[in-house]
Amino acid sequence: MEAQERIETRKDEIRYRTADQRRMVGKFLAEKVCKKWVEDFADQETGEVISVERTTILFEGGKYIDESLAQSICFHIQCGDIADVEVSNQRRIARPEKNYYLRPYTATAVIGEKRKKFILQAQSAAQAIEVVTDYIELKYTSLFVVDSVKAMPGCIILNDRFRSAVEEVEGGNEAGEETPDGEEEREDTKYYKIAAEITALPLEGEKEEDTPRPSSYDFIVKTRDIDTAKAVITAWINMKMKKKAEEDNREARTFEVSLTAAQPFSLSAIIPYAFCVAYKETETITIKP
């Protein structure tokens, strides 16, 4: 009978930090080893001293630590470049890619005996599960299980900011954050999934070939009806483009919206943007020599 091949997972991994050469040999570097230091620079105009963290890589992660490498590591420890290293009994080289932008996700959960669907923003699927779990724990009372999370690339989440008439639109909120006037409590709104083609109108005197080509976008809009949803999208697009034009110090274009598909979208809630941001990880910038 053939012996079964041993399958190792992270559950079998043993990691620890050490400065002891004997405990390094035969292991793998769990992470890349970096030397870090701080340099002070004086602003020539203001005289203000600015501290900048600099870093350089000494050893790449995943390297097998033999006697020679262990000696090199200990040399840097003795020089004060590093205090210790993290080692592992497993060679792990691949690293999850970090995304520092919030992207829309849908998450479904069975809460009690009912299935609920949420939209939220997160930097990864794993983070999306954390966000929706936190939200459900605060908003519901039954046992639950989050059973699916799906990215919605390129989808823009908007809420209706109308309170009286379409002509009084002030714009939408791509972050999905509820408005302070009780948007979530309104009974005259529904969720819609809309595909739209955005067309830029020519500027005065501009040739047609110089006008940007139409672009297609998907939207999730919470509003009263499809006509109102179109007005929300149009207001949001023109608001965003006007702001961008002001930043670039150029003339703002006007955009028209044509709906190519629209249908009701079954959704329990849009998790507020501020709730999602609480989980956002920010990028730490260091300067390499």
Rank of each mutant, 00 (worst) to 15 (best):
E183M: 12
L120N: 03
K27M: 08
P264E: 05
D40T: 13
T211K: 13
V232S: 04
M24F: 09
D147P: 00
G182T: 05
N159T: 07
I73V: 06
A245E: 05
S142R: 12
R250T: 15
D227W: 06
A274W: 13
K98N: 10
N173F: 15
G176S: 06
E184K: 14
Y140R: 11
E187F: 08
A30Y: 03
I65P: 01
V166E: 07
D210E: 15
E283A: 15
E67C: 01
V169F: 14
M241D: 04
S268V: 10
W236Q: 11
L267M: 11
K36Y: 09
E197P: 08
V110K: 07
A274M: 03
F28R: 00
T108S: 09
V85N: 03
P153S: 07
E208D: 13
Q21S: 15
L102D: 07
V257W: 03
E206K: 03
R115H: 08
R213P: 09
D43R: 14
L29Y: 01
F219Y: 14
E39N: 01
R17V: 02
E5G: 09
K36W: 01
E5L: 01
V257Q: 04
T179W: 11
G61E: 02
R92I: 02
L259Q: 04
R250P: 00
V87E: 01
Y191S: 09
Q44C: 00
S51M: 13
L138N: 12
I65A: 03
E86K: 02
C74L: 10
E206P: 03
C155F: 06
Y192K: 03
I7V: 13
T56L: 06
L102G: 10
T282H: 15
T260V: 11
V110D: 05
E187Y: 05
D210T: 02
K288Q: 11
K117N: 14
L201G: 07
D181A: 11
Q90T: 02
E209A: 10
E204K: 01
V149H: 00
K117Y: 10
A235P: 06
A70H: 03
S268P: 00
R6N: 00
Y135Q: 07
V221M: 06
